[in-house]
Design a protein around this nucleic acid. Structure first.
Lengths: 258, 258
DNA sequence: CGTCTTTTTGAATACTGTCAATTTAAGTGG
DNA sequence: CCACTTAAATTGACAGTATTCAAAAAGACG
């Protein structure tokens, strides 16, 4: 479920590297990563970025449905998404689970584990993907050497708190249409920031998972999608979404009159 | 709305100190604080605690209704509650606000400001109280000197993330009775940890504020209190609460069948 | 090609929200 | 100190939205 700190970074690499006689220490470097403006190095400049390259971590391929960590697992790594889509969530006593977040390229998972040394939530891949498994102990050490790295990590944790605040607002005071509109617009913006289309995308999660995240039943999610379609706000074909009227969608959750 | 970094720690102290000819630098020390097992020094041992005493911060008296900081205010301080009850929340576009947390002695406020350098939420006193205003810049410096302080701060931020996860679960999947039961039991535990009665207490927040926090209308909060009373789980007299059947209350939100 | 999962849609129910009236408490000023 | 005003809480009646239960359609997968 979680890989050991000593595990070779090669373990999950394509076979071309494994075939080499003397495999190079394949250090994935943050400074040369195409996600560096979104991910852990966010806001870091030359010097900190250099320090950050001292961070040794492994890349790990994950197949759809596979868990990165489970509730109660020992906390060792913070995971940064390289590719693919992930969900994190908690299991409820009755067997169902509450989705607390969806994560795409450049986003971090596992920060909840710092508090107790064990993960309070679980993270699962919704499609095949790849993550960087960053040893938290090592990141901590680095933080004590360079105060800017420490602050970058703090900012990322704080950002997670802010994100959850807005989700609480959503869950606490919005109706079904507003929730789904907020969800789609948020996803749209995140995809746009990564160079993808803001108006046409494929959902990697089921109606039930969206519903769990938004605090509504899967049938209500489906009905709301249909309602948006008949309002000509969206073009919905199962999980393929095309936003026809971005302004109209924005108006829905902007007009908080409910 | 927020006090300047250079402001004298004496500004909010009783006049007995101000009358002295040469006022001593009145440093409030974490190591001698009666809240040290709950607050910022959580989990710190002798050495870190000594380092933490190097932290200079002011104590600030706050009157009921007064704001500690508002949305968009520049982030300078993390606030630790010494006494009193506070709420934090976001303003909605339509004028109402979403309460994101209630805070009592030993709890921290303002961590959401780290992300952007400005507070994403506001914090207001629900009754007269006192807080420690901890300059974040100074805390950061201290963290780079002692790695254990840095980790303590990280743990506290992570704890906030975990707290919000469970609130999301509440908002996303519980009915009115379960929400109120969860709220009362959580408050009961926190009061107990501070030496107060776990079964009899005075609510400092209105039905509307509880409702905002729990994602329900004030009338529903009131009705649910009445329902608990007729089920002989509680004795409710306006804001005075006496828990008659703690086990029964636990069963309500434990039995997640809804 | 058949099975299983996911999604959509309908009909009825249940829960919470809305609107309104009343009671109680608290604060203000004569 | 009491009348007056304002705010908070309770309760009822009704409306509205989301849930539940059920069935059918459409893909996904082996």
């Amino acid at each position: 479920m979680s890989i050991a700190a000593s595990e070779s970074p090669l373990a999950f690499m394509p076979s071309i590297y494994a075939r080499q006689a003397a495999p190079p220490v394949l250090k994935t470097q943050c400074s040369s990563c195409h996600l560096k403006d979104l991910c852990l190095p966010l806001g870091m400049t030359g010097k900190e970025l250099q320090h950050l390259d001292g961070l040794v971590f492994s890349r790990r391929r994950v197949k759809a449905g596979e868990a990165l960590y489970g509730e109660g697992d020992r906390f060792q790594f913070i995971y940064a998404v390289r590719s693919g889509t992930f969900k994190s969530g908690l299991a409820l006593r009755d067997g169902r689970d509450q989705v607390t977040g969806f994560h795409i390229a450049g986003e971090l998972m596992g920060l909840d584990g710092i508090a107790q040394g064990t993960h309070a939530s679980a993270a699962t891949a919704l499609e095949d993907g790849e993550v960087c498994a960053i040893p938290y102990a090592h990141l901590s050490e680095l933080s004590s050497v360079n105060i800017n790295i420490q602050q970058a990590v703090s900012r990322l944790m704080s950002r997670e708190i802010v994100r959850e605040h807005s989700l609480m607002m959503l869950l606490g005071s919005m109706n079904a249409e507003e929730r789904l509109a907020a969800f789609l617009l948020n996803l749209s913006q995140r995809l746009k920031a990564r160079g993808y289309s803001a108006t046409e995308f494929h959902l990697r999660m089921s109606r039930a998972e969206i519903g769990s995240y938004l605090g509504m039943k899967l049938e209500t999610v489906s009905r709301t999608f249909s309602a948006f379609q008949s309002q000509r706000l969206l073009d919905v074909d199962k999980r393929h979404i095309r936003i026809l009227d971005l302004a109209g969608l924005t108006r829905i959750f902007d007009t908080r009159l409910h």
